[in-house]
Structure formats: C-alpha cells, structure tokens
Amino acid sequence: MDIHVKEGQIAAAPAAAPNRMQRGLTTMRGQHFRRNLTWFLMALPALIWIFVFKYVTLFGVVIAFQDYKGRRGISGSDWIGLKNFEFLFATDSAVRATRNTVTLNLMFIAIGLVVALLLAWLIFEIYTSALTKFYQTMLLLPRFISWVIVSYFVFALLSTDNGVINKFLESIGRDPVAWYNSSEFWPMILLTVVLWGGAGIGSLIYLSGMLAIDPQLFEAAKIDGASKWQQYRFITFPMLKPLIVINLLLALGGIFSADFGLFYQVPRNQALLYPTTDVLDTFIYRSLIELQNVSMAAAANLYQSLVGFGLVLAANWVVRRIESQDEPLSLF
C-alpha cells in the first residue's frame, strides 16, 4: 500500500512541479520525436516507391476478374468473375507453360546446387593456389553478360547453317541439326546456359561459406584420419547446411516464376520451341504485348503470384518443421 502511494507520488510529480531534470527529459523527448520524424522523412522516398510499385500494383490484380479495357481503366471496366481463369485453363498453353516452368526450374535448382557445391569444393581444395583469383574472375564473367549477348553466342554455336556445333557434326560425318526447330533439345541447352551463367556465382557463395569454417576442424579431422570425402560429409556439408537451406528455400519459392530474359532471348521466341521453352513469364508477356489480352495476362499473372506465395509459405513451413531450436533456418 505504502509503495503504491509512493509510486503514485512519483508519477504525479512531473505535472505538479517540473524541475530541471524533468525539463531535460522533455527536451530529450522532443529531440527523440524530432529524430524519429527525420528518420521517417529520410525513408519516405523509398517508402513511396515501394507503396506505388509494390502495393498499388497489388490492387491491380483485380484486372484478372475484369474484362479490362485500357481506355475505361480499372474503375470503368466490367467485372466478369472467374471467366478469365476459365479461358486461361481452357487453352493448352497455360498448362504447358506451367509444366515447363516447374520442371525446368526444378532441374535448374537441383543440378545447379550440385554443380555449385562441387565447384566451390574444388576451389576450396586449391584455395592457396595462385590461380584461384583467375578462376574466380572467369567464373564471375558470365554475370556481367546480358541475356541479349548470351543469345548472340548461343546463336553462333547453334545456327543451323554455320553454327560451331553443326560444323563439328558435319566434320565427323553426322547430319546437322536444326536446333531452333527441334524443341526436344532445349531443356538440355537451357540447362547448359543456366549452369554457365549461374554456377560460378553460386559457387562463390558456397566458397565464402566454406572459408568461414574454422580450419582447426579440418586439422583435427585429418589427425583422426578422416578422408577428404569424410571431411566434406561431416564438416563442410553440415556447416554449409543453413546457407544451402536458405538458398533452396528462396529458389523453391520462386519455382513458379522463370527468368524472362533467359527464356525470351535464348530460344529467340521461336514458336516451334514453345513446347519445351514457353514458361509462364513468356506466356504472360505474349498475352499482354503480342495478343493484347490484358485480362488473360492478368489472370495468368495472379495465378503465378498466388501459387508462388503459397510455395514460399509451404517451403518455410517445411523448414520450420525440420529446423532445430538452436539453429533457426526459416525466413520468418
């Protein structure tokens, strides 16, 4: 009881008689408020950008339920319920694009991970060598090259009449292949291009993870007679696991969206190649720009975003189930 009264007195004191200390406190509060305001103003330009480009566009997904007409805008267009989705899935192309997106992405993720880990391990083993810098530079080189240029040299390799590969096939007495007309080869061609472009940068991520491992662990393992493979299996791999899981999680979350540049440029938008190279992103582009069917494009877009969001949540949920308390791996 006594204590409560005292607390009440202290709490009431400021209102009753502001002393010097109290004034100091209020100016500090004022400063604190001013500082918060300044911080908010600093953040404002980027916040406005994010609001306009990430949140306003979220409302744009309603186009998927409209018969959208450009001149009437979103507010003036007619609502047609799920018709766009019916229309979308009535065509084989949407289903085909979905299948291509998922299977190709799965292949890229799985093989890309193995190759990146392998390359990282190889560089790690010879890390003290003078050549390491050269390898790293070369492995990063594709990162500087735009898909447009990639499509140029893929064309130089695969051109039917005078591409490098066909000239080689001719020289060993085999028939040349019309690569840009034969869709069956394209999953492998695209995989090669993806590994060429991405494995280097991926391996550098894992290499930096390997370099962060305490070298004493490897020393101790060596003294205990562990082979290289055992060191990898029981030290390197477990230490890299968080990094691998995060990368896989992000990749699996993005399994429904394809790299538009890769799929638009490298197969050069050849209709004959669509059976294996048309993905959701190229499909949406064509519906929007070439067919001018905004509503159907929006429906495909919303379908892609929603499934993608679901996949991120699902992947995160799976990781939460398997992660241990002391080693949180999930994103949220």
Partner: peptide, 27 residues
C-alpha cells in the same frame, strides 16, 4: 526508430508477394 518494426514489415513483405508484371505494366 519507433516505426522500425512496422516499416520493416511494410518493406520486406513485398519480397513474398507481388502483383507481377501486368499491374506494373498498367500502372
């Protein structure tokens, strides 16, 4: 920063879900 948590959420939520290319194009 008092608004740190809500604004962080506002910013980083966009990594999970976005409207995609079509609303962006219309905008």
């Amino acid at each position: 920063f008092r608004l740190r948590r809500p604004l962080s959420f506002f910013v980083f939520f966009t990594m999970l879900f976005n409207g995609g290319i079509v609303p962006f194009y219309i905008l």
